[in-house]
Write a protein that binds this DNA or RNA. Structure first.
Lengths: 280, 280
DNA sequence: GTCAATGTGGAATGTTCATTCCAATTGCGG
DNA sequence: CCGCAATTGGAATGAACATTCCACATTGAC
């Protein structure tokens, strides 16, 4: 009983699999062709369903699904299904695929190159994520709120400080009055004591949240000063005391995050506010 | 044994569930709060994983996941998981709609939305540009140079200051000695006078170039201290006095630039340096 | 028309998984 | 400090599942 089907290595990503299916579609037996057509037409079903449910939809037996997967070098149906799931995960950020292509050369790459590519990919994903997460209406409300403020207080400590410092720089250029809170010790609270309900605040804080930022935001909110915030989780203490808040999930590489997406958001907010003021 | 938990009907869609979780996050026990945070921060994991794998990631027991789901009226964990899957199915289409709206450019859109989309697109382009522009070998050389320095001096003024300030923050966490130059008036030159050829400098400057940054970099270079720089043009005064220099062209929107690509580069450099040191 | 080879359906199997249950622990009110 | 209730961890359970296997059907060759 000589094994004809030499052990082929299965496709590693969805596109390769798709190409392989299309290529062999003609030479496949009837039922397997049926599965092939169904798989390419209903990839989402394959990703989420169970073998039994998919088999029913495609009008074949579960065992046929297994045979189909084995035709393409997988151990069983589950291995093939993983590729369909991965596709769904990465559809938003196709950069994962690009990165994996980069990493395939990876053995020969210097570690610094791997790290660099990782941060580039993370930046892309982060920007995609914030583009999807920010609701235009909420953004517009936040802009209006801040544009109407006499002075905008920018609250940020530690990791988020670079963002607010860039906003302060840009506001300066744009002739929008703002006050950076979070620089050096002590004077912060005195500064904030001067804020009135005619003003507004923009607070930024990422996990692990600096307790002063949250406390300051809460204090301002309690005094009737509207707070807009940028944070990385709905569980942030900032979320609950803000009129409007936005979530930015900076993808990380090896546990470190760049601020790429936050920076883009911050500049969009800054310029939008200035523009709204200019127009009256 | 009177049943207290009257049979509540579970949320029917993801947004409702999300709202319910946020609403009750305060009154939930510790482990369930942990699950709540994990679920909202890693929805994709919930959608695809098995109860066991998710439990491990979230650092709880599988049974806790079931209890969590039951808190919100589901029979078990599987019912809750369905909502996370449905969300993923729908997200793809809504994200594509968003991109289409982005390209249609603005008829009915609020101005802030146009600006926001513009900065998102600019961030994408910038990151692509720097990924293409940075040569791995040069990057590796720069990392080596800076990793060997006793103290790393970070020179940046104005627009580039937020980047160096984030690097300084990260270096602090990573236990890499560095000195931020460019904060307040006067003391800069005194600081730099202490630098020796065992040290190194990383300078950042974008057009219009702050004259002090260029002058400081030149002075250091003349004293035999290696300088690495990040700038936006080959004509930058920094380029000529640097051992290694990198070009980042931040795409702009309406004349304003975010620092998205520079931030990604800076973090890649920072982490690479720390990693190289750690490995000896 | 017969035989062999290939393809197919469906039951049987063994594994993985969600769920349940109970004991141990923690936190809280007295 | 004690006792009770709520919460938690982890093993036990039973259901759902992918996979395998075998009998049967179909196809194509001689």
């Amino acid at each position: 009983m000589s094994e004809i089907t030499a052990k082929i290595t299965p496709p590693q990503d969805f596109d390769t699999l798709r190409a392989a299916i299309l290529e062999r579609k003609g030479e496949l037996p009837k039922r397997l062709t049926q599965v092939a057509a169904y798989a390419l037409d209903n990839p989402d079903e394959i990703a989420f369903g169970t073998a039994a449910s998919i088999a029913q939809s495609a009008d074949v037996q579960p065992s046929t699904l297994v045979r189909f997967a084995q035709q393409f070098g997988f151990d069983g149906f589950s291995g093939l299904q993983l590729l369909f799931r991965a596709r769904l995960r990465e559809r938003t950020s196709s950069y994962e695929e690009r990165l994996r292509a980069l990493e395939q050369d990876g053995a020969a790459l210097a570690e610094s190159t791997t790290i660099f590519n990782g941060f580039i990919a993370a930046a892309h994903r982060s920007v995609d994520a914030i583009a999807a997460a920010v609701e235009p209406d909420a953004f517009e409300r936040a802009v209006t709120l801040l544009a109407n403020a006499a002075t905008i207080y920018l609250i940020a400590k530690r990791r988020s400080y670079p963002i607010s410092s860039y906003m302060a720089y840009a506001f300066g250029k744009l002739k929008v009055r703002c006050q950076l809170v979070g620089t050096s010790a002590g004077i912060d609270d005195d500064l904030l004591a001067m804020a009135t309900p005619d003003d507004a605040a923009f607070a930024i804080s990422f996990s692990p949240y600096a307790s002063e930022s949250a406390a300051q935001a809460r204090t301002l909110a309690a005094r009737g000063i509207p707070v807009v915030s940028l944070t990385d989780s709905a569980f942030s203490p900032l979320a609950e005391c803000s009129r409007e808040w936005f979530e930015v999930v900076e993808a990380d590489h090896a546990g470190f995050r760049s601020l790429s997406a936050s920076m883009a958001f911050a500049m969009a907010l800054t310029v939008s506010i200035a523009e709204k003021r200019r127009r009256g």
